[in-house]
Amino acid sequence: MSSPSDFGASDSGASGFESEPMLGVADWTELPTDERRCLRWMLRTGEVTTLQTSEELGMDEDASRVVLEALVARKLAVFIDEKIVYVGNVGRRTARFKPGGMWDALADKLIDD
């Protein structure tokens, strides 16, 4: 699997995405199947438990915890306590590349009008 640093690391913001060591949406295509299935379900469901995850993925609770921990390690999910897993950090669309301050000036004018 590709390293997070391979994606959008230092393009001066021209792509519109922040440079930080986390997996973006574009990286989800490279996730192992179980993790991708789990992530997809969590995005639709919100907060989930390991028991719910095991039922959704059709595996025992220990195996589902391994999948969840992998997503946590990739910063795609966060454990709130022993039982609840919460999807976090889907990503932020940053500002577009601003050539020579022109866009700043234009945006200022449009926002103020």
Partner: peptide
């Protein structure tokens, strides 16, 4: 509104 579109492009937002 042009100002709202400009703000999104300028400031971004949380996709989550």
């Amino acid at each position: 509104k042009p100002g709202d579109i400009a703000r999104v492009l300028r400031e971004g937002y949380d996709v989550g």
